[in-house]
Write a protein that binds this DNA or RNA. Structure first.
Lengths: 245, 245
DNA sequence: CGTCTTTTTGACCATTTTCAATCAGTGTGG
DNA sequence: CCACACTGATTGAAAATGGTCAAAAAGACG
């Protein structure tokens, strides 16, 4: 449930490294395309499966996650949403959301009008290209997640997930002194890995025993990414530069 | 390994239902954008992980699949490629393929030059929009697959997969009298579901016993989609119309 | 006919789930 | 400040699901 709405300010993500700079015309358009900002509380639903939202969002700050559920309530977390990620592109393209998005922490969103998307493609091809690039990146992430859930052991999966989140957060400038606190519960981890909470707990304990992570109440502190990468048998993210809308 | 290369003819997929008709200018451009056709044998690799291919493809006929592997050889099939699907968009956007694509049957591909993709965005916004739509559809499919692998039981997963493939094939006009033969081995099914071949075999036997499918050597015949949908607890694909490039 | 791949089966083992409590931390109202 | 409720983390034991190993059967194919 959206709580507050303010006039849009300059996007903080702009500080991050980008493919390229926007042109004057693009900056002008983007600032016009934006209709405001939205503050959302932790635990609040940003978009629901089946929704026909008139909006498309960029996450400016905070954490969120995308998920789907089966009819009997089993939930699968598909991916986490970090600053710079688009939220609701699917709804803008096919009209209806086929997954839900929920905030993990208080988050700030940048709001766009979804019906102006065709205009972006018509008049701002490089921004359209960036959007497609971001959609394709989401696909790459899902490929990795599917490989992980389908073929890695519970321990490898957990190590992969935490290393993956760490690297994404690091890239977005959220880490401090090579450490990171991720605002998630073990239930979230379980629903991401496709495991039960009980087994997730036992698996995380093993990572804690190796001093790779430390679990606090409702948050996971990553202590040693390299160790996690090694347990996961994963090379890590290769991405160095990316576009931001 | 590509085997044969011929001059490009009119795309057979054109017969299928589309969002909209191409304009004269678009038809002209697409036919210029195409550089030829490619015939690939069953079992041949179309694109390899790590490849920097100069091409982007559309599958015109036949079956293929996308997959990733871990270093020790464990393989996860990410999705199947049916006529009308794009192959290698990822390579065109980020320069390098992060998954491999292999033909399941003899297939025919339509070849495009990847370096002309920016031109598509610049001069043909509606085609660019279609490409983004298709990329987003792939994401939706991956979301479903991840939900399935992460949260469905072996029997549900198998039923979901076969119903899913059936529906996609049906939409592409590959079914006959509500039946379909899918050219896959049980190893492929296992690698898609994240199961062992032995357990996959036992699971498929259960579906056979219920007369929902019939397994032939190297191919699966779907007999009763509705039955599969019911076992899977799935509503089926909602998609009715789509763009084709 | 012999070789190769794919499918099938049985026995046994490992991983993961489920169930059922318990414990720890947080916030609330009295 | 304390009792109480609530959520999230932790534990142990029993049960189920799925994996591994090994071998045989069934087709495909030259």
């Amino acid at each position: 449930m959206p709580s507050k709405r303010t006039k849009c300010s300059e996007c903080p993500i702009r500080k991050l490294e980008r493919f390229r700079e926007f042109t004057e015309a693009e900056l002008k358009f983007v600032s016009d395309f934006k209709t405001g900002e939205l503050d959302v509380d932790a635990g609040a639903t940003i978009l629901d499966e089946g929704a026909h939202s008139a909006h498309l969002f960029t996450l400016l700050s905070g954490w969120a996650f995308r998920y789907k559920t089966l009819e009997d309530g089993r939930r699968q977390i598909l991916n986490f949403v970090l600053p710079g990620d688009l939220v609701g592109l699917q709804g803008s393209l096919i009209g209806e959301m086929q997954h839900s998005v929920e905030a993990l922490s208080p988050t700030k969103l940048c709001v766009f009008q979804r019906n102006r998307l065709p205009e972006v493609f018509r008049n701002h091809p490089t921004i359209a290209f960036d959007i497609t690039w971001i959609a394709s990146r989401e696909e790459r992430i899902l490929d990795e997640n599917l490989l992980s859930v389908g073929r890695r052991s519970a321990l490898e999966r957990a190590a992969y997930l935490l290393a993956f989140i760490y690297q994404r957060a690091e890239y977005t400038g959220m880490t401090r002194a090579s450490r990171l606190s991720i605002p998630i519960t073990q239930q979230h981890v379980a629903d991401t890995l496709g495991l039960s909470t009980v087994h997730t707990n036992k698996t995380l304990k093993k990572l804690s025993a190796r001093k790779l992570i430390k679990w606090h109440d409702r948050s996971c502190e990553v202590l040693d990414v390299d160790g996690l990468l090694q347990v996961a048998g994963w090379e890590g993210l290769s991405e160095q530069q990316r576009p931001f809308i």
